[in-house]
Amino acid sequence: MTGTDNGREAYAAERAELARLLPPAPGTDLPPGRHEHHRERLMNLIDDDTARTRERAGSPARPRLLRLSFLAPVTALALAGALVVGYSAQSGAPQDAGDARSVSQVLHRISDAAGKGEALPVRDDQFGYVRGTGRDVDLTSGTLVVGPLKESESWLSQRPGPQKKLGLSRTDGETLPINAELGDSEGTRPGLSRPTYRWLATLPTDPRQLLDYLTELTPKFEEEDHDHAVFVSIGGLIGDPLLPPDTAAALFEAVALIPGVTEAPDAVDALGRKGVGIAREDARSATHTEWVFDRDGLTYLGSRAYLTRDTAYGKKGDLLGDSAVIETAVVDEAGVRPKG
């Protein structure tokens, strides 16, 4: 057996052990991309830390792992068995001046509609409620396996400060707690991965300042175009039921400043609802992500992600996940549905 074979076996064993330690993907238990954000961040940190350790020890670094980042609220991808694949060093898809003007006009319309929304009064002891549906994508078998469409509900705590219990989720009749982000031993603070109403209301409403701030908050990883990571981060906020109108308006104007953002004329959510689409492609991970908005009121409907080229685990066009928002509200108690 060659040294390369030994290295591959050691890598596979290490990856399997990491997968065993991670909790299983709980389906659509979290709204706007939260679960995928947590798992993605953890696995990237594991990869980066391992690579630095091996470099210091003079050992060859293991192959980089493809990280698929999905927008909100696409259901969680089970990354435990993700295959190693190569990627291009390019950034997002090219965009000419005409395309940029067109998508900017669409985003301005969406921003204007969002800014006219009703600001919800939210107390610190209340919960943001989201009911939606979507499909999980599992890679543990080595190839893409798309799960059935499942409806889920979540209740997210608005309490300020770090919290160890962030709310509740319910899927297939099973209700489970939403715990703090992995690694947050003292609890998860309000922020990008836990956007409470109070935190959202403090965000800058100047689009450039807001984009710069979110860019700074979004982690950087070698295998992901950072502009796309920021696009995904904003996707984790736009479906939030607690988003203040001024903040929502600024978010869409900020998206217009991200290179590579385009229109998606065939945008459709997990329920088959067609609408106005805003999309971006990440050539590094071969991923196309898009948001879907109602054609009439320009309200957020859901999202979709798919492969843009053949990979070791799937073909070009294969679905990587989709979602649809059915209902959002503010409620007084976790586990209790809104009246009416």
Rank of each mutant, 00 (worst) to 15 (best):
L168S: 06
R170F: 10
H108S: 12
G173C: 11
S154D: 05
S91E: 14
G117T: 15
P160Y: 05
P162D: 02
P160R: 03
R159N: 10
V85H: 02
D124H: 04
A97I: 06
V137N: 01
G92I: 08
F127R: 07
L144Y: 12
G142N: 06
L139D: 01
G115A: 09
D125E: 15
Y87C: 04
L83M: 13
A97H: 09
H108I: 05
L107K: 01
V74N: 03
S102A: 12
R135P: 00
L77E: 03
A119V: 14
G161H: 10
V106Y: 04
D99N: 07
Y129D: 02
E118I: 15
P162H: 04
A78M: 11
V145R: 15
A119L: 15
V106P: 03
S88G: 12
Q158N: 13
K165C: 12
G132L: 00
V130R: 00
A82P: 01
L79C: 05
L156H: 08
G134R: 00
S169R: 02
P148K: 07
K150E: 12
V84K: 05
V74M: 02
R159K: 14
D99A: 12
P148S: 10
Q90G: 13
A119W: 14
T75V: 06
L139M: 09
G81F: 09
G98A: 13
Y129I: 01
K164D: 14
L107S: 01
D136G: 07
R101N: 06
V103H: 02
D96K: 04
L77K: 01
G92N: 12
I110L: 05
R135M: 04
D138A: 13
K116C: 14
G132I: 00
P162T: 04
K165G: 11
L83S: 10
L83A: 13
P160A: 07
D112I: 02
I110C: 03
S104P: 02
D124C: 03
S154W: 02
E174W: 14
A89N: 12
P94R: 09
V145A: 13
D99V: 05
P160Q: 05
V145T: 14
K164E: 15
G115F: 10
K165D: 15
A97Q: 13
L83Y: 06
V137C: 05
W155H: 03
T171S: 12
K164P: 08
T143G: 10
P94C: 09
A82C: 06
R135C: 02
A97S: 11
